[in-house]
Amino acid sequence: MSITVRDPGNGGSRTRGKRSHLDLGRRGEDLAARYLTERGLIVLSRNWRCREGELDIVATDRSTLVVCEVKTRSGRRFGEPAEAVTEDKQARIRRITSRWLSEFQVGWCPIRFDVLSVDCPPGGEPTVRHIPGAF
């Protein structure tokens, strides 16, 4: 499912290099979090970190824990954003999810791993493509 999301931001930084890359990523995560909450999910954590890495968004639909990997791109030079979620990345996200569950003392619950692919074309409206149960 793909949807255009209203972005109240100023279009992000136009500076070059690492800072603009980080700004683009944060903008994509903000849009993804809003997309999820507008669809009734409750965001439990954003950018949760441990020594193994980071979970972008952990949410719930009140019956399932939904771990979301957000990939944001401003163009297709490096391919579809969701293509960046490799098997190695998926395995790392699963390991980090175990740490999250332990940290927050969450017992058994159904878990779903989603990918949110955010396109932020320069001068255009961003779109969010949600892939539930991506891995």
Rank of each mutant, 00 (worst) to 15 (best):
S2N: 10
T4N: 04
G9C: 03
N10F: 14
T15W: 07
R16P: 00
R19K: 11
S20I: 00
S20K: 04
H21W: 11
L22T: 09
L22K: 13
D23E: 11
L24G: 01
R26W: 00
G28K: 02
G28P: 09
D30Y: 03
D30Q: 13
L31R: 06
A32I: 08
A33M: 10
R34Y: 13
R34V: 11
L36A: 09
T37D: 05
W48Q: 01
W48N: 02
R49T: 13
D56E: 11
I57H: 03
I57P: 05
A59P: 04
R62K: 11
V66A: 02
V66M: 10
T72G: 10
T72R: 08
R73M: 08
S74K: 05
R76A: 09
E80G: 00
E80S: 05
P81A: 06
A82T: 03
A82L: 09
E83D: 14
A84K: 15
V85K: 09
T86M: 10
T86G: 13
E87A: 14
Q90H: 04
R92H: 03
I93R: 01
R94S: 10
R95M: 06
R95E: 12
I96M: 13
T97V: 11
T97W: 02
R99C: 11
W100M: 08
S102G: 12
Q105M: 07
V106H: 07
G107I: 06
W108K: 07
C109R: 15
P110E: 13
F113R: 08
V115W: 04
V115I: 15
L116N: 06
S117K: 05
V118A: 08
P122A: 13
P122G: 01
G123H: 13
G123A: 06
P126Q: 04
T127I: 05
V128I: 10
V128F: 08
R129M: 04
H130G: 02
H130Q: 05
P132R: 14
A134N: 06
F135G: 06
